[in-house]
Every structure is written in C-alpha cells, then in structure tokens.
Nucleic acid binder design. Structure first.
Lengths: 261, 261
DNA sequence: AAGTGGTCTAGACCACCCG
DNA sequence: GGGTGGTCTAGACCACTTA
C-alpha cells in the first residue's frame, strides 16, 4: 500500500527516507566524514531513534550519489563509536539509548578537557629535578636524568579534589605556569606538536597519610583513589609519567567501554 | 648499490621484503584478516621491529596478489589496535615497543578470562529476588521485578581479593552454580547467545565496613576499590548490573588506552 | 527466495612529506 | 618532484538472516 516515488523499490520505510544530507564535494572534509557527522547529529537529536533501521547501503549510496564503500566507511565509523550495530541479513540499527555519548576514558579526558569552567588547577611546583628510579624507568631515561616535575592541585567549587604529580623529559616542552593553569597539560603538549598515541594507567586505592590528608582537606586514613599513568606519543617515546591521588569522597573514574567483537 | 631482483624498483629496503605470507583464498577467514594476523604475529615475535617501515601499500598489494583496499583494511585493523602508525608522505611504521599487548580493559577482561589457573571463584549466593530501586534503575526494569542475584567471592593464592555482586534480569540465562565457578559469568552469557556490546563502569574507593573487612580478611577502615558496572547487549538491553569491591592491598585496575585522533 | 551486510577488485586522483 | 597514505568509484560475488 505504500506509495513510493517512481522507480523506488517497495521496501520497509526507513527513518532515513525523510532526512536529507548536505554533502559538499568541494569541502576539504572527506565525504564519508561529512556523512558520518550528519548521521551522528541525526541520532543525537532524535531524528534517528534507537532501533531504527538505516536502510540498506546500496539504496543509501545511490540516493546520496556516493559509492557504496564510501557510505560503508561512514557507517563503519559510527559502528566503531558504538552508535550503530550491523547485522548481516538484517540491517543497520541505531543502538538502543543508554550508550550514547561514550564518555571518553575519564582522567585522561579530564586532563584533555581541563580548563573547563568547573575545575581549577593551581600549579604548586614546576621545576627541573633529577629522575628517581621509578620515574626514570617509566620514562625510559637514565636514572638521574633531568626531568620536569609538575605538581598541581585540582579543585572544584573551592574544594580540593586531586593532587597531580607529573614528570616529563626535560626540554620536551615549554611549561609556562600561567598557561598550564589556564590550558591544561595535554592541550599544551598537543599545541607543541606532540601527538599522543597511547597511555597505560593503573588505578588503585589506599589510605591517606597525614600530609596527604592535610593537603586534600581529608582525615588521616581516609580512602584515596590513586592513579599512575605513562603516556606515549606516536613514535613510542614516553612523554609523561604521573602519579595522582584523588579524594574518593569527591571523585570517581567513570567510563564507558565497547566490546570489540 | 642495492641489488634488487629484476623488475623491482630501487627503493629503501623494507623489513617486509624477507617475510612471506601464506594467504589461503579457500579459507573462510577473510584475506584482510589473514594478512592482519600474520603481520601481527611478525610484529609479535620481532620479525618486524619497532620503527620498521612496512613499505608502501601498492608494492605490498602486488606482491601479495591482493588489491590495495584489501591490504589497507588489514593495515588499518592493526592501526586501530595501536600496533602500527601511518604517516602520510612517510609510510607505515611499527609502533615503538612499550605499547604492545594492549591489555584489555581490566575488570571486564578479568571477568571474561576468569577461570584461568590463578583466580578461583566461589558462588556465595545465587537466587531470585525482587529488584531494589537502584538495581531496577540500572537494568531498566520496574522496581520489584524479579532479578537474579549473584554473589561471588574471588580469590587468588587462597586469599580473598574481591566480592562481586551481580544482578541479571530473571530468566535471561540459566545460571548453574557449578558452571559459574568453572567458566565465569561472561563466558556463560556469550555461550547463551548474548553478545555484549558496551558497558559503563565507575571506579571509586571507600573504607571497609566491619562486615566487608571480615569477609575480605582486611581490617575495618582499610581502603577498598569499588566498581559498579552496567553491561548492555547489542540491542541496547541492560543484561547485567554489578557492584563490586576489591581489596586495594591486593588489586588494582590496570589498562591501556589508545588516543583516538 | 529475497534482502542484507561482508568481502574483494582494479583502477583513479588528491594531499602531504621529504630531499 | 617523487613517494607516501587518504579518499573515492563502480562494479562483483558470497554468507547470513528471515520468511
């Protein structure tokens, strides 16, 4: 009974039929990326509801004037983000709610996005010191080599949340204290041309020592979250090592993970 | 000065030249996947050392008798895994050590791989109960709906490490206690045809209550790691909610993350 | 049997990096 | 300017799901 425009095959209606996408072939932005962004936006604001089928890739590609591989590339990027699910013989569906907005790995995300309105960061120490054994091992340097020591106190709403202690190979980066407090460490590294590639983190817990308690406004023996991280750039060079402590009463790591199949 | 076989262009030697790959076109395993596996193995055992260039994709594809997109698909999968880095105008390199063996997100990994030699798991409770408010909210059920409550004590070397408390929608799965102890929860879910898609985790810390301390062989007030997780299948349905506590003195979450560019 | 995604091919042109 | 990866096309056949 469905009325379809001439030449269109009779098929189940797809929510995509009513959407139109604006693809600019003169843009430097790749076509697959333009499509992916617009699909993501449509999912984001509900034009494509959870469970909706996207309609088959062939139709979609002819309607958009793209080749199928290009459309597939766009869809695949959203599958990788966890927004879509493909089933052979069935179709491609918008994933059922919940998952959206895959909060990035916190802590790193936190650092990357620092300098938002909420949290403020005060640089307590910013100096060059010889590397202790653990620092040297983590950064792949000789013991005693010069490293930049960075100690920062992060607060929200005027209350301390975390004490961040970072080590970087000396000379890797110009670490201006004022810019650090305004911009965040990772953004400065990115601006300096360092492309982060991977990081390794260990999250644990222990009781606060008297000194830690005093600095974080906690009681001695209070539970603290601890995190150690070594970050590498895309050449495999260790560019940062950090040992951080968080007030467990005011902070938790919250993250989403996708199960690779 | 380099002697090359007839017809080969004169170019920088690639470590790949001396390797040969066995591709079986009759195998049900996709060609790109066969190639990816063999490349990964070569990196793994050092035939391709960190920093080595892979040589350009065109040569590689002709040498292997594959099309360039197929070779690209293989390489891309290893880039996604963090084993290779591509640079336009330069080439594709093996990432400099360190990173290898991207330990999966622990905890989930831990559960997935449970039933290894080390850890043993004892099921303490396995029964059907009405869902409390927080459990109902996490699983997307009505309050009071029937859920399966699973309580397990995990130990290594005869020492308790964690107390795991899981809730699943009733009837989702046959949860035989003996199999649970031998196989692990996630493996049983997979065997039952449930394909995990994503999970959301929160990791925090707090001090042990007297009861928790007694069950985990800790002192009251000792620091504990806490983890809550909700897992979803690929239809977006919540299939598991868990609140877990770990002895901080014997356990830490250790994971690696790749920075998406 | 029909429809879907999964894989694969053989080309093409462009943007970027380097010497 | 020469080499690299990045993008894109227009087909093809296969495997799986559903009815």
């Amino acid at each position: 009974m469905a009325k379809t425009r001439a030449g269109a095959r009779d098929r189940a209606a797809s929510a995509l039929d009513t959407l139109h996408f604006a693809l600019d072939r003169n843009s430097p932005v790749p076509l697959y990326y333009q499509l992916a962004q617009q699909l993501e936006a449509a999912i984001e604001h509900g034009a494509l509801a959870p469970g909706n089928l996207l309609g088959n890739e062939i139709d979609l590609s002819t309607r958009l004037g793209l080749s199928r591989p290009t459309v597939r590339q766009a869809i695949q990027s959203l599958v990788d983000k966890g927004l879509l699910v493909r089933r052979r013989g069935v179709g491609t569906q918008v994933v059922h709610s919940q998952v959206k907005r895959p909060l990035e790995l916190s802590s790193l995300y936190d650092d990357l996005e620092a300098a938002g309105q909420g949290p403020t960061t005060r640089v307590v120490r910013n100096e060059t010191v010889p590397a202790a054994a653990d620092v040297a091992a983590a950064l792949g340097l000789a013991q005693g080599a010069e490293v930049t020591l960075l100690e920062r106190l992060r607060s929200t709403h005027g209350q301390p949340v975390a004490l961040l202690c970072n080590y970087l190979p000396a000379g890797l980066l110009e670490l201006d204290t004022a810019r650090l407090e305004a911009t965040g460490l990772y953004r400065m590294m990115r601006a300096a041309g360092i492309t982060l590639h991977s990081a390794r983190q260990t999250v644990g817990a222990r009781s606060a020592t008297a000194e830690e308690a005093a600095r974080l406004d906690e009681k001695e023996g209070a539970a603290l979250l601890t995190m150690q991280r070594t970050a590498y750039d895309d050449t495999g060079r260790a560019v940062e090592y950090g040992t951080h402590i968080y007030r467990a009463s005011r902070y938790a790591f919250d993250f989403q993970l996708l199960v690779r199949t």
